[in-house]
């Protein structure tokens, strides 16, 4: 079943199960294995691939911001908007708004990944947020790491 000569081998799930340790070792070197379930032919394939390579791929997903409001006659707050995820932060100071944005984007990432069938539905307009939010999750709730990864120092005064 396995075609070892192929650059991107396709394996049956049963075969992959038996060889998982060696497949993982090979995947670490950069090889991608596609797992197919013979019993469920209409389902999409699943890849076994290095996490580091996926992380590298996601690095191109960068975050950009827009200050929408500042305290004045219509509101008491600054509003910070992230263009890529449509998540915002609100606060009486810019710093407060930035920290509020971090809280909100962490919440959104948790909710998004807890209900992937909803968010990855073709009719969900937020489907494209996946790779950005994956970057958030990879920071493991470390706020300092998030602050740097989200490039928030560029807008923090």
């Amino acid at each position: 079943m396995r075609k070892d000569d192929k650059a991107m081998p396709i394996l049956a799930v049963s075969e992959a199960k038996n060889k998982l340790t060696s497949l993982r070792r090979e995947a670490l070197t950069g090889k991608e294995f596609i797992l197919a379930d013979a019993k469920r032919k209409d389902e999409q394939a699943v890849s076994l691939i290095s996490t580091e390579l996926l992380d590298e791929l996601c690095e191109s997903k960068t975050f950009s911001y827009q200050w929408l409001d500042e305290p004045g006659s219509e509101t008491d707050n600054y509003s910070l908007w992230n263009r890529e995820t449509g998540v915002y932060g609100v606060g009486m100071t810019k710093k407060e708004a930035i920290f509020d944005f971090i809280d909100n984007v962490m919440d959104y990432s948790q909710v998004f990944f807890a209900d992937l069938p909803y968010y990855l539905s073709r009719s969900n307009p937020n489907r494209g947020h996946y790779w950005y939010l994956r970057r958030i999750l990879r920071c493991n709730d470390n706020r300092d790491m998030l602050y740097r990864m989200l490039s928030l120092e560029d807008i923090d005064e």
Binding site: D69, T75, S79, Y108, Y118, N126
Partner: peptide
Amino acid sequence: TSVWKGITPDGKMRTCIIHAKHKGNIGPGL
């Protein structure tokens, strides 16, 4: 969380962020 979501009968899937701690008016830009 601060996240709200749901589907209306017309099939629109929405997500909105609302933080309970915020007071007053929402800014016009936001």
